[in-house]
Simulated scan of single mutants.
Amino acid sequence: MNRLKCLCALCLGLVLAGCAHGVGRLLPYESWRLGFLAPNYMEVWIETADAVDIQGHVFRRAMSGVAAIRTPPHFKGGPVGWPANPSWGAGKDVHGADLPRLIYVRWQSLVEPQTYEAYVEIPEVTRQLMIKGEMAYCGARNKWLTDYRNALTIGLAPGGIAKAWIMGPCLPPVEVSRVQGSVVRVGPYDGTSGGEHRPLTETSKAYIEKFGIPYGSW
């Protein structure tokens, strides 16, 4: 209930702020994408990811479920740190939304296990970059074209770390922010599962038992 009140209060503030800025902008693309990823073996389950745009519109469960992750066999992949060029992650297009202003995400970190929540604010400078067209060479099409950073990707790591980037199909990623989330005291699924998290796969479980969790690397 406290989280719901907090989100509602934030949304009200965003609506008022949106009114102060006038009418919304026309995006140079149909929609922007919200995606999630996790470090190798550090499995997560996204209970909900809610998006709030600059007009104060709330898109509940804009994304949920698994985040993009690699779990190579025989421990042939390290989870330390974030890649220089992160993938778009597992995600969906947020249709009907203006530019994002806030992302609320609640997720289960299965390797600990622990449930976290975080508020990722998208600053104005980032939104300006999302609608700025840039010339880029697109290898997939073998030509130069005007591209946009219309994908917002959030990495979720043990300890409640959430790190965000924006990127485009042919443009390099730009870091948005790094947020320290907080523990959800009632546990997974808003306390309705009796404290039971989703199960960890055997591959990730074996990695954790052998190498542990590299806290502080994200």
Rank of each mutant, 00 (worst) to 15 (best):
C6D: 14
L7S: 01
L7R: 14
C8W: 06
A9R: 15
A9Y: 10
L10H: 11
L10Q: 09
L10K: 14
L14K: 12
L16V: 13
A17Y: 12
C19G: 10
A20F: 13
A20L: 13
G22A: 11
G22N: 09
G24A: 15
G24S: 07
L27G: 03
L27E: 00
P28Q: 07
S31Y: 13
S31V: 07
W32Q: 08
W32M: 12
R33Y: 15
L34W: 00
G35D: 02
G35E: 01
L37Q: 10
N40D: 11
Y41M: 06
V44W: 00
W45T: 06
D50V: 08
I54T: 15
Q55L: 11
G56W: 01
G56L: 04
R61M: 07
M63Y: 14
M63A: 10
M63S: 09
S64A: 14
V66F: 15
T71N: 12
K76A: 14
P79D: 00
G81F: 13
A84F: 08
A84M: 06
N85C: 03
N85W: 08
N85H: 14
N85V: 05
W88Y: 08
A90L: 14
D93H: 15
V94G: 04
H95S: 12
A97W: 12
A97Q: 10
L99D: 09
Y104I: 03
V105W: 03
R106L: 10
R106E: 13
R106K: 15
Q108N: 12
Q108V: 04
S109D: 05
V111P: 04
P113I: 05
P113V: 03
Q114L: 13
T115E: 07
Y116S: 02
E117L: 05
I122C: 10
P123R: 10
T126H: 02
T126G: 07
T126N: 07
R127G: 01
M130F: 00
E134W: 07
Y137N: 04
Y137M: 04
G139N: 12
G139S: 13
G139E: 13
A140L: 11
K143E: 15
W144A: 09
Y148N: 09
N150G: 09
L152N: 01
T153H: 07
L156R: 04
P158S: 02
G159K: 04
G160I: 05
G160M: 12
I161A: 14
I166L: 03
M167G: 12
G168R: 09
P169E: 11
V174A: 11
R178V: 06
R178E: 13
R178T: 06
G181L: 02
S182K: 08
V184H: 03
V184G: 06
R185F: 03
P188C: 03
P188V: 01
G191T: 00
G195F: 05
G195W: 03
E196D: 12
H197S: 07
R198S: 15
E202P: 02
T203L: 01
S204G: 10
K205M: 07
A206R: 14
I208K: 08
E209N: 13
K210R: 15
F211N: 12
P214F: 06
Y215G: 04
G216E: 09
W218D: 01
